[in-house]
Each structure stands twice: as structure tokens, then as C-alpha cells.
């Protein structure tokens, strides 16, 4: 079994993984961080989105061995203690979530999407969230949340 070392939510972790272990399974099963979810098996729903070296990726479509040496951030690594990240706070303020299942992926995608673009338009947000499916909200409040989050992040 290959060995990998990475920075996960700011913490160095290392260990052996099977080659077939997907990044999402490594996060959920090996690292016991269950905030990253699996909602489909064809890489479309985006419930599993995490950041690898600052970019949003679908952790169900990457192998754990591929993040060797990388920096990985999951939803658990976004807030500082009990202080929510501005994007998380924006989702709370704007009721951008209902059942919460797609939320971690949605928030991680949104943070990446709006980085450097505090005035992102509604159309850009809607198109930019193409890789994340939500069945509860009709996206209306998600779009509002992301717009507010972008402003709060200040680009």
C-alpha cells in the first residue's frame, strides 16, 4: 500500500492508503471527517466538493494517492473555532440551506467561485454552481447567500 502525507485542514496527516481509495472515502472513513458527503456516483452532484491546493474539486473523482503532498481543506476546516467563515455565515443569514446535505459541497464550491470577485453577478453564480445539485432550496436563497458571502469575503 502506498503511503501519503498531506495537510488536512491545516494539520499534517500521513499514512498508508489502498490505491483504490477515493479522496472522499479517505476523508470520511480514514480521517473520520463526515462533513464531506457522497450524493451520487457519476461525479455530478457536488456534495463531496473540497479544496485541493485552494481549488474546488470533487473528492469522489480523485484518488487519495493523488493528494500526496497537497493541502486539502474540507468543510470542517473552514470555520475558525465557532466563528463561521463569511460564506458559511452568509448561508445562515440567507437561509441558503434546508436539509444540509448538499451544503458542505455548496459552500466549498462557493468559496472557490467568488474568490477575488466580490461583485459576482447572479448569472455568474448560477453558472458557477453548475457542479452542485441542491434538491431543497430551489437555489434562490443559495444564490443570495453566495452573493452576500462574496461581498463579505471582499474578493
Amino acid at each position: 500500500m502506498p503511503s501519503i502525507s498531506l495537510t488536512l485542514n491545516g494539520r499534517s496527516v500521513s499514512g498508508e492508503v489502498e490505491t483504490k481509495t477515493l479522496l472522499v472515502d479517505y476523508i470520511r472513513e480514514n480521517q473520520k471527517l463526515t462533513g464531506t458527503h457522497v450524493g451520487c456516483d457519476t461525479s455530478q452532484c457536488g456534495s463531496c466538493v473540497v479544496h485541493v491546493d485552494g481549488k474546488s474539486v470533487k473528492s469522489c473523482t480523485m484518488l487519495a494517492v493523488q493528494v500526496d503532498g497537497s493541502e486539502v481543506t474540507t468543510i470542517e476546516g473552514l470555520a475558525t473555532g465557532e466563528e463561521l467563515h463569511p460564506m458559511q455565515e452568509a448561508f445562515r443569514q440567507n437561509h441558503g440551506l434546508q436539509c444540509g446535505f448538499c451544503t458542505p459541497g455548496m459552500v466549498m464550491s462557493a468559496v472557490d467561485l467568488v474568490a477575488g470577485n466580490p461583485d459576482i453577478s447572479e448569472t455568474e453564480i448560477r453558472e458557477g454552481l453548475e457542479g452542485n445539485i441542491c434538491r431543497c432550496t430551489g437555489y434562490h436563497n443559495i444564490v443570495k447567500s453566495v452573493q452576500a458571502g462574496a461581498k463579505a469575503m471582499g474578493g
Binding site: E76, L78, A79, L84, F91, R92, C99, G100, P104
Partner: peptide, 13 residues
């Protein structure tokens, strides 16, 4: 605002 949101937003559901 919803009581349940903090845990969902932080991956603690």
C-alpha cells in the same frame, strides 16, 4: 435564523 444551521454549515450534522 435556524438553530440547525450551525451544525450543517460546519459539517457537523
Amino acid at each position: 435564523q435556524r438553530k440547525e444551521d450551525f451544525r450543517f454549515l460546519t459539517g457537523r450534522g
